[in-house]
């Protein structure tokens, strides 16, 4: 039982950046825009977050700086695809390339730097609670932050008037125009909020999870998040379980290594890509058939937008 809980807490810790990124991209896509630049936004978030934590010594400032950096980069996506009308996939890739370049360029001075990160909760009062105490204490502030944001997003998106308009701009831009609202404005909001979340996701990775900075450290997590949005059928509630699929694959790879299994760590390292990819394939057909996809996105997915 405690072994299972241990695996679950490692999975949650690993999954948190992907969880936040999936949540952010879900919000973006529900307004009818796809942003493949998540990976780049996570990278600038990770670099800016790490730099801010290093300079200020305050990991909370780091998370804030990362989120803002992600949002700043997402403005490029808004400019290219909303204002200039560039293909959304190409525009997202431009964001990805620029984020990768900027974070690698400015990040060169951050390599090998040390930060302290958040204080551990393992010696707090909560750790002495029966059964779940140890589990709760293993988790870090970014997990709790992700949890709060997840609840807030899902309720706001699915249960409020503003959430209804948000979703409507992804379902039918025409209907929104008839109501006298501008779909472009809601999409801008969708892109910026997505940028904020994915920047935060990157900072959670570098400030709280690895506590180091390496160029290209997100290693495909941002793109996985874009895929996982589809697996989650654009439902914010499902962002947690789908991110846990990634987290469990990664945690399992780590666990098998530490158990001294005679399997190459590089081979095990393929699990976090293979498992979500397979789940993506299994759920793809179902997610399209059941009409979960925001209608305004279907053109992009047919490759014609």
């Amino acid at each position: 039982m405690s072994a299972m809980l241990g695996l679950l807490s490692v999975a949650l810790l690993t999954a948190t950046p992907v969880w936040l990124a999936t949540l952010g991209e879900t919000l973006t896509q529900r307004t009818g825009v796809i942003n493949l630049g998540v990976e780049g936004q996570m990278l600038v978030g990770a670099a800016a977050g790490f730099a801010a934590t290093y300079l200020s010594g305050n990991p909370w400032l780091g998370l804030l700086a990362g989120a803002l950096a992600g949002m700043a980069l997402s403005c490029l996506h808004a400019l290219l695809c909303l204002v200039l009308g560039v293909n959304q996939i190409a525009s997202g890739l431009a964001v990805l390339f620029l984020g990768n370049g900027l974070s690698s360029f400015y990040g060169t001075t951050l390599v090998d730097k040390q930060i302290t990160g958040f204080h551990s909760l393992t010696h707090s009062a909560a750790a002495r609670w029966p059964v779940v105490g140890q589990f709760i204490a293993e988790l870090t502030p970014s997990v709790y932050l992700a949890f709060a944001l997840w609840l807030a997003c899902a309720v706001l998106l699915l249960r409020t008037q503003a959430g209804l308009v948000w979703r409507a701009s992804g379902e039918s831009a025409d209907a929104l125009r008839m109501l006298g609202k501008s779909p472009a404005r809601w999409r801008l909001a969708g892109i910026l909020v997505g940028g904020l979340f994915t920047g935060l996701a990157g900072a959670a990775l570098s400030v709280d999870y690895t506590r180091t900075w390496v160029a290209q450290m997100t290693a495909g997590r941002g793109l996985l998040a874009v895929g996982l949005v589809i697996v989650a059928r654009w439902n914010p509630w499902l962002a947690l379980p789908v991110a846990l699929i990634y987290g469990l694959a990664e945690a399992l790879a780590l666990r098998l290594q530490s158990l001294g299994m005679n399997v190459s760590p590089y081979l095990l390292g393929t699990l976090p890509y293979l498992v979500p990819l397979i789940v993506l394939l299994l759920s793809y057909r179902a997610s399209r058939r059941r009409g979960a996809m925001p209608q305004e996105l279907s053109g992009v997915f047919r490759g014609m937008a």
Partner: peptide, 12 residues
């Protein structure tokens, strides 16, 4: 990494 930035700027 400056080439990565330059390539991205060219693409944009």
């Amino acid at each position: 990494a400056n080439t990565l930035v330059l390539q991205a700027l060219l693409f944009i």
